[in-house]
């Protein structure tokens, strides 16, 4: 950090970053790919939610604007249904990661 400790203008000070690198799969590149794949899920879900909101607004009003999407508040039923949709998405897409049985081998 270039600024001195606890600079008054910003009320922030120096901090100490973690010392351990998060490599769990014996190959940093593999760990990174995993993280990228997971992070893409959050980007995908943002688009899916946008679609959900736009479909709702189009059904209700026949038109839609960015402002309407941003301001939209899901009903309780929608919130519950979308949460379920999200969890099914996660299970469908990321469930593969659990196929790590140590005895599973290639045929032949």
């Amino acid at each position: 950090m270039t600024e001195g400790a606890n600079t008054k203008a910003t009320h922030r000070g120096d901090f100490i970053p973690p010392q351990t690198e998060d490599v769990f799969l014996n190959n940093a590149a593999l760990d990174n790919v995993m993280s990228t794949v997971i992070a893409l899920g959050s980007e995908f879900w943002a688009l899916q939610k946008r679609m959900n909101v736009m479909e709702t607004l189009l059904e209700e009003n026949g038109s839609v604007s960015k402002e309407m999407v941003e301001a939209y508040r899901p009903t309780e039923e929608q919130a519950a249904a979308w949460e379920e949709q999200r969890d099914r998405f996660i299970n469908r897409v990321y469930g593969f990661l659990q196929n790590t049985d140590p005895d599973s081998k290639r045929a032949g």
């Binding site: 959050s42 995908f44 879900w45 943002a46 949460e83 969890d87 996660i90």
Partner: peptide, 10 residues
């Protein structure tokens, strides 16, 4: 908000 909803679900 949606990205964080995913993060919470994940």
């Amino acid at each position: 908000e949606s990205r964080l909803e995913f993060t919470q679900g994940f």
